[in-house]
Design a binder for these strands. Structure first.
Lengths: 358, 358
DNA sequence: GTTAGCACTCTCATTCTCCGAGTGCTAAGT
DNA sequence: ACTTAGCACTCGGAGAATGAGAGTGCTAAC
């Protein structure tokens, strides 16, 4: 009697779906009128009372219909819903939004991630968040110092992930050809081929010491290198489409503003290790505090390593069956694309080094 | 009788200031109680009735106090208010927010503009907007093609404004040294020293033609150059702190969302030529349609040319006396900084070219 | 185990009432 | 001719009263 059965699950699913669609508490009559339910409203009522006792549903007040509890959503997501599948044409559309244009054209990981975020925000009408620490796993493939204008030098740093960083530095005087090539050579020698995660403060300090020993007034350049190093190590958190959050009645505006200003609190949550797709509900954890909201995240990988997570934040009342497949598709696609790139660029590495040492 | 006088102006100013502070319609009693007003409430009432007839004030409804009309705000801003002045320490704080750190350190114009936007949004708790077309007035100071990884080439483009653009392109095969240096040389020869505004579609097409004539399969590189060109010509519109707009009761959320999604409609308005500081009120113009909002903009210059505008968008009920000085200071500071930079980098140009042609 | 019937509960929208802030006008004061 | 006290008037908005309707739980019959 007090236990679950097929029909109760069906009713739970129906409640979730109807509530997600309309935002109104769902009554027994409404449920009974559904084609897939073949019992009367009274029976539905009995079942709903049980579902409430079990903690899957709740009533905002006595004479209203039921709405799902967090527990209810969770059960629905894990066991009951049938995720929409993406027809071929839909996938093409998604690829297009990612900027993946058929011809295996070069595209930096950074841009890919950005496009994914924008696309996800657009598609789901939610805030899309990405926590990306893939740069940490890429290798510095090139460092150059380029004179440009008087006394101005641009340091250029390229990683195997295809991200290109640069920084202009102004010196007090112009470098001679020898000085420039020494500096440039020194940097190449000590940085190229090193993976970003191997870059340590220690290593950088040695570098700094060596270079300022060579010539004190290189300091601004050294400083530039240091800043680039910090940029590289930075763990990027990207967020787009926050504005959508303001259109949901059931999210508290104040909490949304707070969230926007303290996004970084999320990082820990996103970086937790987990596999597959994870759904977290607002106020469930202390570092994600928008009431009535939920966050859906998935990891993406580079080769076998998790290098980031992407997902969306929206109202708890969200069409999970639609949103989850998007996230799944994007995380898979990104994994494919950056893994493939890393294959292509990691292979040549030894070659390059050989060439250099000739 | 029906005409302006000292006291009426004082009352108007008092109404504006009180309304800006509290957001409540202002009654005669409130005004009469102010120390700077030495007449009774009845007299104030008479004056306010006149101010209403003249169109400077209005009543939301009969038994409420008065609030300023657009005309009222305008008069206040132009004639009545006394802009707060910025004490030395405040300026230092602002400079710090701009990222101007004493030592005349190199800083790209782009970054400067970005910092200004962020700072303005933060200081005023409004949305800050910047329309920047300074890149158009800068000169391409360097173009390089750098091989990196197998079959991947990075095109690097540096302008006198200090902005550095790059693009990675993948070819079907590796270039020989000769091919690379030809390509690189050709680009340098035809692009360096040219001001961005001189770059025309025509010029680019000639370039494309010449290069693909030399070798068909350079196409991806040529494509890369073309994309960089488009990036450069792009007229940047930057906007930060939109979120603040959601906390103002008197701005319609829907209109704010619409604004965020169609910011570019603003461009025209911001690019109009005007001098000094301009205040535009929402719904005043058809391309700025957030009701009860106002936008305050100022041009900034590079040398003698207007190269952009920056400002804020907030509720009409805004502390103009505080906000306007910020905008004035920033636009002046930016003007100073980028003009100075352009002096420093424009001068050397001939030198560089000489060096090259040796 | 299911269902119809019914009394009951509680929200929400509507209506009504009334308070008070603020006004405009008038008449008296300077 | 201006200023001011006094007063009647207006109107929005808060709060109480009311009623309709949606939804429930329970009971008794199927």
């Amino acid at each position: 009697m007090m236990q679950m059965n097929e029909r109760k699950l069906k009713i739970l699913a129906a409640v979730v779906e109807s509530y997600v669609r309309t935002g109104e508490p769902v009554g027994s009559k409404m449920i009974a009128s559904l084609p897939e339910i073949h019992v009367s409203a009274a029976t539905v009522r009995n079942d709903m009372a049980v579902l409430e006792q079990l903690g899957y549903l709740e009533q905002p007040h006595t004479s209203a219909g039921r709405i799902p509890t967090i527990l209810g959503y969770r059960l629905y997501i894990e066991k009951l819903m049938s995720p929409a599948d993406l027809p071929e044409e839909e996938r093409e559309r998604l690829d297009h939004m990612l900027g993946v244009n058929g011809n295996g054209n070069q595209m930096s990981e950074e841009l890919l991630i950005q496009n994914a975020t924008t696309a996800l925000a657009e598609l789901t009408q939610c805030a899309a968040v990405v926590s990306d620490f893939s740069p940490q796993f890429s290798v510095i493939s090139k460092v150059e110092v380029i004179p440009t204008g008087k006394r101005v030098y641009v340091i250029l740093l390229i990683t195997s992930g295809g991200s290109i960083k640069n920084k202009a530095c102004r010196l007090e005087f112009d470098l001679t050809k020898e000085q420039l090539s020494w500096f440039s050579g020194y940097l190449s020698e000590h940085l190229e081929g090193i993976s970003v995660s191997e870059l340590s403060d220690e290593l950088m300090e040695n570098l700094t010491a060596a270079m300022t020993a060579y010539m004190m007034s290189l300091a601004p350049l050294v400083q530039g290198v240091f800043e680039l190093y910090r940029d590289l190590r930075q763990h990027a958190l990207l967020c787009k489409g926050e504005k959508h959050l303001f259109s949901y009645e059931d999210l508290d505006k104040m909490e949304v503003v707070r969230f926007i200003e303290h996004k970084d609190e999320l990082m820990q949550l996103m970086d937790d290790s987990f596999s597959g797709i994870r759904v977290v509900f607002g106020k469930d954890r202390e570092n994600f505090v928008i009431g009535n909201s939920s966050m859906i995240v998935s990891k993406y990988r580079k080769g076998r390593k998790n290098v980031g997570s992407l997902g969306v934040i929206g109202p708890m009342r969200l069409d999970y069956a639609k949103v989850i497949p998007y996230i799944a598709y994007f995380s898979q696609k990104i994994t494919d694309l950056i893994s493939e790139q890393s294959e292509q660029t990691r292979e040549p590495c030894p070659d390059e080094e050989d060439q250099k040492k000739i």
